[in-house]
């Protein structure tokens, strides 16, 4: 089957792409659009490294076909910072030591972003539930939770 033409919004920018039917959204972002902040961890939805926000909801982009993003809005980790100014969540992750190897970080931050968009002042239980699809082997999660709490506070105060 020939390639399919799709158009989608990525980080606020309208993009066109020709994709194979069996191409994943991860591959579209990484291989075609060169947005390599989205990571390959397991390919089967077990780890959350490839998390992106699709129309406001987090998804494992390894389990979304690129063609399914037709007409939709995707936010990747590259869409958060304003120029060189980090998004408050990114800054909080940096400040709290919530990043070690960093491989889970883009997905983790996007899960946190989707959580705060929906629940600006989450409880600890809401944070852990919101991040429960993102595995991290380095941090033990404690500093990640602290970072999200801190960012929530700062974002609320504006």
């Amino acid at each position: 089957m020939s390639k399919l033409a799709i158009s989608l919004t990525v980080n606020g920018v309208q993009r066109q792409a020709l994709v194979e039917p069996n191409q994943t959204l991860t591959s579209l972002l990484r291989d075609e659009l060169n947005l390599t902040g989205t990571k390959h961890g397991c390919g089967v939805g077990d780890c959350g490294c490839c998390t992106v926000i699709l129309d406001g909801e987090t998804v494992n982009s390894c389990l979304v076909l690129a063609v399914q993003a037709q007409g939709r809005e995707v936010m990747t980790i590259e869409g958060l910072a304003q120029g060189i100014r980090l998004h408050p969540l990114q800054q909080a992750f940096v400040d709290h030591g919530a990043i070690q190897c960093g491989f889970c970080t883009p997905g983790m931050i996007l899960s946190a972003k989707a959580l705060l968009d929906r629940t600006p002042q989450p409880t600890r239980a809401e944070i852990t539930k919101g991040l429960s699809g993102n595995l991290c082997r380095c941090t033990g999660y404690e500093k990640i939770v602290e970072a999200v709490q801190d960012a929530a506070g700062k974002m609320e105060r504006g």
Partner: peptide, 8 residues
């Protein structure tokens, strides 16, 4: 599953 899985 997880939030990402539940969303799909």
């Amino acid at each position: 599953g997880s939030p990402q899985v539940r969303n799909r």
